[in-house]
Amino acid sequence: MISLTDISFSHADRVIFEDFNLTLNHHEISGILGPSGIGKTTLINLMAGILPLKKGTLQGIVKGDLSYIFQDPRLLPSETVYGNMAFVLKRHYPDPKACREVILRNLTLVGLEESLDRFPDELSGGMKQRLSIARAFATPSHVLFMDEPFKGLDPGLKTQLTAAFKRSYQATRKTVVFVTHDLDEVLALSDRVMVLGSRPARVVATEIIPREAGSLQPLVDLGKIKASLLSHMI
C-alpha cells in the first residue's frame, strides 16, 4: 500500500497541499482526476521524489523503484528507438542478451518492433509516446507514474495508446498512479479513481471502476460513476 500522510507543500506562496492524506493500493491502476492547476502533477512528483517532500510522510515507494511516463515522451534525440530503451535498461540488465530480449519484448507489445533503428525525429507523436510506454514497462520497477500521457492527442491515437498501455500493463501488473483531467481517459484505464478538489487540494471523491467483461451491469454503473465524478469536478 502507498500512503501519504499529512503532506503539506507550497509553491511561490501558494499552498497546494495542507495536511493531505491519500492511500493507494499496489497492483492497481489508480487514476487521480482533477481540474488543471489543482496540483495533480505536483502530487505525483512528490511521490516520485522529483519534488522534495518537506512535511509529511510517504510510505510504500522505494526510491529508484519507479518508472514515469511524462506528458512529453522525453527521448534522447541522438539515440535510436533501441538506444533509448538500452539507455535506461543497461543498468537493470547488465547481460546484453537479457537486455536485448527485454527491449524487443516490450517494443513488440507497443508495436514498435519494426522501428528499432529509427531516431525520435523519424517517429510520429503516437510512436514516440508508445516508445515512452515501452521504456516505462520494460524497467523492472514496481511503481509507474503517468502524468497526462495522452494529453493533446487525437481520439484515434488515444485509443491506440490506451491499447498499447493495456497490453504492457497486463504483462507486468505494476502499481500505476496516473493523473489526468480527462474523465473518459481515467474511466478507460483505472481500477480506482480519486477526484482532487478545493484549494488546498484534497480528495473529494473516490470511485471503484467495475471491470467485469461481457456484463451490461458495469455499463450502467459506469454511467453512474461518470455522473458522480462529474458532479465533484464542477
Binding site: A48, G49, I50, G64, L66, S67, Y68, F70, D72, R74, L76, P77, S78, E79, G83, F87, V88, K90, R91, R135, T139
Partner: peptide
C-alpha cells in the same frame, strides 16, 4: 533538463547521463 530528470528517475549511471545526455 527534462532528459536529465528522466535519466535520474530511471537511475541511469552518471557516466551514461554524461555520455548520452550532456555530451550530444
Amino acid at each position: 533538463p527534462h532528459l536529465v530528470e528522466m535519466a535520474g528517475l530511471y537511475q541511469v549511471r552518471p557516466a551514461g547521463i554524461l555520455l548520452k545526455v550532456y555530451l550530444p
